[in-house]
Design a protein around this nucleic acid. Structure first.
Length: 216
DNA sequence: CGTTGGATCCGCT
DNA sequence: GCGGATCCAACGA
């Protein structure tokens, strides 16, 4: 089933508008076995083709094509050779822009996420201790693992199953802050990271202290 | 609780 | 060849 309230307007503008507007929205994943996982977006980063830190900065390529396509598509890439990161494309067709989803808060299917994240990998006998729910989805590669987002979903239309977005307002009293982005070296001063203040799933970072509270 | 180093591979100025 | 939009185990305090 497709999303009943896909936030099209949120994604059609700038990368910043998309990154801010996606906060609070639900990300829903339908697995092949019928299981469903859902999570609230609590931390994002904006990137676009005018930004030296963006994968779109050096122009369109096979890898980053989803960023240049229409808004509301999945841009998935491999990070550090072994992790996956998930972006939502933004802006007009032809303009490279998107929002990296850095953290989400589980609202449904926590058991599925726990299984996907913490099940013993390839027979190794690693101790599965000290595993807390906050570690399920408090990072860009973690949430991809928890929600089964991989390269097979590259370019996927995020208004349709098996992975889709749904509009959802912030909770009463929740505030949004902007900070520099995490883990980049280029354009490191730009305030293009956005997060819900005091949400436990937001990545802990010294950059959190250099934030600016946004109006609203 | 904070810091550090290793894993691992794709795409590129 | 090099450098990541990262994660986690293994320390030390």
């Amino acid at each position: 089933m497709a999303s009943r309230d896909f936030p099209n307007d949120i994604l059609s503008g700038s990368a910043d508008e998309a990154a801010i507007g996606l906060l609070g929205c639900l990300l829903i994943r339908e697995f092949d076995d019928g299981g469903i996982a859902a999570a609230r977006i609590v931390e994002t980063e904006a990137y676009d083709q005018n930004d030296p830190a963006s994968h779109a900065f050096h122009g369109r390529s096979e890898r980053n094509a989803a960023l240049f396509g229409p808004s509301g598509r999945a841009y998935v890439y491999i990070s550090y050779g072994m992790h996956r990161c998930f972006n939502v494309s933004a802006g007009d067709d032809g303009f490279g822009a998107g929002a990296l989803i850095r953290a989400v808060e589980p609202v449904r299917g926590v058991e599925i996420m726990r299984e996907r994240r913490f099940a013993n990998r390839s027979g190794s006998r690693t101790t599965v201790g000290n595993r807390k729910d906050v570690d399920l989805t408090n990072g860009p590669a973690k949430l991809c693992q928890a929600m089964g987002i991989d390269l097979k979903l590259y370019g996927h239309d995020l208004s349709t199953a098996p992975l889709y977005l749904e509009r959802n307002a912030l909770l009463e009293g929740e505030r949004i802050a902007a900070s520099p982005r995490i883990g980049i070296s280029k354009a490191a001063e730009r305030l293009r990271r956005f997060f819900i203040v005091d949400n436990p799933y937001v990545t802990k970072s010294p950059l959190n202290r250099r934030n600016t509270l946004l109006a609203g």
